[in-house]
Amino acid sequence: MTDLDQRIASVLRERAEGEIDTHRLLHRSRTQGRRRQLRRRVGAGTALALVGVLGFVGVSGTDLSGLPGRLPWTAATPTVALPVPPRADGVPGAATDPARVGTDPTVLHLGVDPAKARYLGWSVRGLAVETVRFEFDGGQPVTVDVARTVEAFDGLGIDGFPVDAVPTRRAFDGTVRQVPGGSGGLIMSWQPATGVYARAAMLGGDRAALARAVDALRWNEARRCAAPLRLTALPKGASVGGCAVDVSSFPKGLTVTLTIYGPRSATMFVSLQHAAQMAGTRTDGNRTIDGRAAYVFPDGGKLELLGIPQAHLTADFGWPVKGFTEVDAATVLAGAQVAKDLSRPETWD
């Protein structure tokens, strides 16, 4: 478990006694349902499994639990145009310029062949690790983490895998390793190009399936960490340092989490959680942001901008990610731009 994982887990435990958070409650109930479904599928010998949660950074298809890049997967309606991160024109892929990997929170220096796989999510975390999640072979989910150093994998867990079963700092020689403990997990670490380190993880399936998944990756292209959320105003000295998008349950829902870093390790998570069936649970604000109703949570570390149809837009700046204030969060939310139609990826940019 990474230091960030531990901090987020602490946040959830700390706030367990406060007001019920409908976002997290929705996430937990759906996550439990997925786990039960996973156990049934594994018991039946199927290849489907759950791997992953913003991280990007996940949320029930609608919540990242504050952690970029940690995303669960569910089926999406096949008749709907599915989100694909758009190409970053003029930007070389990891195979062409390995030094660029993990240096831009808005760019992924790899892609997935859409003829072989469907994107479930993508993220750039901490200006170090880029992640794509996709499904292939009729629903087999895979997560791939990419970095330009071996050290970036230290403590970088994989959701669905036991913490002590995830290898770190092992040789990136292409060997496929079975995860101990009977989970059926497979992990492959390799170098797709000199100066590029990659790790693919899959629950269920076999070595041949993992090889097909790896073959779907494209290392000679770059794509933007596109999302239906833009931040146009930041506190002084702050910058966006992480991006995570979960489209695993699209079009029924999606989640975006953008991480803001500031001076003296200040951190803020800005999340857009959308669900087509979501009904507003809070209409009475206790704050205003540029004349719009807003709500600060009882613990004083989370601010929500109200009035966005079928969505929650929040800024989490409280313990343990201290450094920013409610005023800072209000500044960010005041400048946040949400796509008018969250169900149409072509309108996100």
Rank of each mutant, 00 (worst) to 15 (best):
M1E: 11
D3R: 14
D3I: 13
I8K: 04
A9G: 13
S10R: 14
A16I: 03
D21T: 02
D21G: 02
L26F: 12
Q32L: 15
Q32F: 12
Q32P: 00
G33P: 00
R34H: 12
R34Q: 14
R36D: 13
L38N: 09
V42Y: 07
G45V: 04
V51W: 05
V51G: 01
V53M: 12
F56S: 13
F56Q: 12
S60A: 14
G66T: 05
G66C: 04
R70Y: 11
L71G: 05
A75K: 09
V80M: 04
P86K: 04
P92D: 05
A94K: 03
A95M: 04
D97I: 00
G102Q: 05
D104M: 06
T106Y: 13
H109N: 00
G111F: 04
R118N: 08
Y119L: 15
G121N: 02
V124K: 02
L127P: 00
A128S: 14
E130G: 02
E135G: 14
E135V: 11
F136H: 14
F136P: 00
D137V: 01
D137Y: 00
G139M: 07
G139Y: 06
V146L: 07
V146W: 00
T149E: 05
A152S: 14
A152F: 02
D154Y: 10
D154C: 05
D159N: 09
D159G: 15
P162L: 07
V163S: 12
D164G: 09
P167Y: 09
R169P: 00
A171F: 06
D173K: 03
D173C: 02
T175C: 01
R177L: 14
Q178L: 14
V179Q: 02
G181S: 12
G185M: 12
I187T: 08
S189K: 04
W190K: 02
L203I: 15
G204E: 01
G204I: 02
R207I: 01
R207A: 09
L210P: 00
A216T: 05
C225A: 15
A226P: 00
T232K: 04
T232G: 01
L234K: 09
P235W: 09
G241F: 10
V245E: 13
D246R: 01
K252V: 13
G253R: 06
T259D: 11
T259K: 08
G262Q: 05
P263V: 10
A266G: 13
A266H: 07
M268I: 10
F269E: 10
F269C: 03
V270L: 06
H274G: 00
A276M: 08
Q277P: 00
M278E: 06
T281V: 09
T283G: 15
R287P: 03
R287H: 11
D290H: 02
D290K: 03
R292I: 07
A294N: 02
V296C: 13
G301F: 04
K302R: 15
K302T: 15
E304C: 07
E304K: 09
G307P: 04
T314N: 08
A315L: 05
G318D: 12
G318A: 08
K322R: 15
G323L: 03
G323Y: 05
G323Q: 03
T325P: 07
E326H: 03
D328L: 05
D328F: 08
A329K: 04
A329R: 03
T331S: 06
V332K: 06
K340L: 12
K340W: 06
D341S: 03
P345R: 03
T347D: 06
W348A: 00
